[in-house]
Amino acid sequence: MNQINVIQEIDEFKKLLSYSKNIGFFFGAGSSCAFGLPNIYKLTEDVESMLNSSLKPHFLNLKYSLSDLHTRTNISVEDILNYVRQIREITGEKEDREYDGVNGRVAQLLDEQICKKIFDVIQAKERAADITELRKFFAWLDIANRSNVKEVFTTNYDLLLEKAMEDNRIPYFDGFVGSYEPFFWPESIEKSVSNNDSTFNWIRLWKIHGSLNWEFRKDSLSDSFKIVRNGKVDEPENELVVYPSKEKYNLSRKQPFIAYFDRLKNYLLQGERLFIFSGYSFSDQHINEIIFNSLRQNPRLYAICMCFSDEQVDLMEPNAISHLNLCVMGPQKMITNGKLYQWKYDESIGNASESNLYWNKGEERFILGDFKKLSAFLIANSGKKKSIEEAVYGK
């Protein structure tokens, strides 16, 4: 395998950061794992252990069915949720209809309890999380180039991002409006905001897989369900809106998911962009189609994927070699300009004075796949570290 000098590549990355006027971010589960939240497979184990005795056998049976169907053992709680929701759909939630040993009523109860246990697990981890580095990241993003709207997309349904911004008193917008029961207003994210609008510098947060503080609420007049966003929630009263299945994507444009997908597509297709992925495993085909189509259609879009493991680099290789505007960086490997390389650390070329920010000399590996390390690198490279720390610590 050919080698490439990590110092030179980081110098190029620094140049991209300095001249890019529009930088967007996409956060996956790995970014939350950096703050102690479980990855999807640990979350699956936790949910499984917490289900009540009447529903747990159904959960396990569906898990085994999916293992046989997909010929793999790493079935996640999201896979199971999607399957449960398909059963709800085809049975009409009726007790006298069943599929794969699960009737409609049980599927409904199982869906609701899985989401409730996800809430319990993540909320407990959120309370214990130290989000100082996340607050620093948003302080950096808030004072970064103000000539373009700042947008953050995420598949995470935890509330760490919201907590970090609110702790910093940074205004953000997610498409919901109102104060009593905030409702989703798609028109608010479909129109461009002029730079003289008071909300122009608000950070846009698009939670593509829903959120722990979204609930389905029944409308008393129409007898239909709507999605509302709560504030701080200690105990959800209604069914949570997390990890929407394919059916939920297609239910209505009044729901956030399709509108968020459209926002992602439009954002990536509009002019020059630097788009940085952190903690995203590229396991959602709905999202991947938008990303790779945008990379093909917009030659001025440049995407960088920071990977925590080299296994992810290997998985990305088939797509990365056919998209010259996609760069993938892992601990030992990198894909750039359609070619796979092995990292080489050579201090004789380039500026190695701050290499500890992106390279672990002892373990000889690239470390920006860790969100905390990426955040520290961005802040150090900005030249505004003092202002950022003042914004966080108030000194």
Rank of each mutant, 00 (worst) to 15 (best):
D100Q: 12
D100H: 07
D100V: 05
G104K: 02
A107W: 11
Q108E: 10
L109I: 02
L109E: 13
L110T: 09
L110S: 06
D111S: 15
D111P: 10
E112D: 14
E112I: 09
E112R: 12
Q113V: 14
I114E: 10
I114R: 13
C115Y: 06
K116V: 09
I118M: 02
F119E: 06
F119I: 07
F119M: 06
D120H: 09
V121A: 05
V121C: 10
I122D: 08
Q123M: 12
Q123E: 13
A124L: 00
K125S: 08
K125Q: 06
R127K: 14
R127C: 02
A128K: 06
A128V: 03
A128C: 01
A128Q: 02
A129G: 00
A129D: 04
D130C: 04
I131M: 01
E133M: 02
R135G: 00
K136W: 01
K136D: 02
F137V: 03
F137G: 00
F138H: 04
A139P: 03
A139N: 10
A139T: 09
W140R: 01
L141E: 01
D142K: 07
D142M: 05
D142A: 06
I143Y: 06
I143G: 04
I143F: 02
I143M: 14
I143R: 12
A144T: 13
A144M: 11
A144Y: 14
A144P: 04
N145F: 13
N145K: 14
R146F: 11
R146V: 13
S147L: 11
S147D: 15
N148Y: 15
N148V: 09
V149P: 05
K150T: 09
E151M: 12
E151Q: 14
F153V: 11
T154F: 08
T154S: 14
T154M: 09
T154K: 08
T154D: 09
T155G: 07
N156R: 10
N156F: 11
D158I: 10
D158L: 06
L159F: 05
